[in-house]
Design a protein around this nucleic acid. Sequence first.
DNA 1: CCCATTAGTATCAAAAAGGTGCCTACTATA
DNA 2: TATAGTAGGCACCTTTTTGATACTAATGGG
Lengths: 102, 102
Amino acid sequence: MVAFVNLISGKWAIPILYRLIVEGRPVRFGELQRAAAPITQKELTRHLRLFEEQGLVTRTVHPEMPPRVEYTITDLGRTLQPTLDSLAAWMRTHGATLSHTK
Amino acid sequence: MVAFVNLISGKWAIPILYRLIVEGRPVRFGELQRAAAPITQKELTRHLRLFEEQGLVTRTVHPEMPPRVEYTITDLGRTLQPTLDSLAAWMRTHGATLSHTK
DNA sequence: CCCATTAGTATCAAAAAGGTGCCTACTATA
DNA sequence: TATAGTAGGCACCTTTTTGATACTAATGGG
């Protein structure tokens, strides 16, 4: 199970993946960045590259200017939906209960 | 949802919590350490303190020698079960698919 | 010429996580 | 007497992760 943590590791992994799943369509880089704000470009890029490597996401480059790159959830990535739904539901129900002490 | 990642952050959080949930009874420190091997004392302690702070786990010290400290999942902690079950199921089904490139 | 746009890369710095070794208190056992 | 076992604390160090900033390419608009 340690591997799962590895997979969704990184502060931003879950929000990014969830967004891609919810949208179900190709999503542009900038859109993802706004969805997972305040993530930096660098971190978003890094996460997306990891997901691509794991086969969770597909990357499509449109050779235009300004550049347009779209990310789409794969079938494998989509299998995460029930789990992420469960996460989201838990957060809605119990999220407020948690202390946010740093 | 970033908060969730925060909650279960750390390589070991999920295995520890899951063990506590599955057992459902007070579990000793050493037992948890073996369950989440090869975690170090320091990290296990840190995680358990965090869980305690979040109200997911109760810590009970028995003033004996050698010391005995037991950790028990709380009601709040138990609400994580369906989500963690889902995680575990996903790993069983798709875990092997993932690349483990570092 | 200046500026904005997009999806990055490069570089540097800071913060978080993790590892190691040493110490304790008391008991039991060899 | 020496040693092991328990659940840590504390100090020090290395590695990993995250973040902040500046920079770029190719085009369109003013």
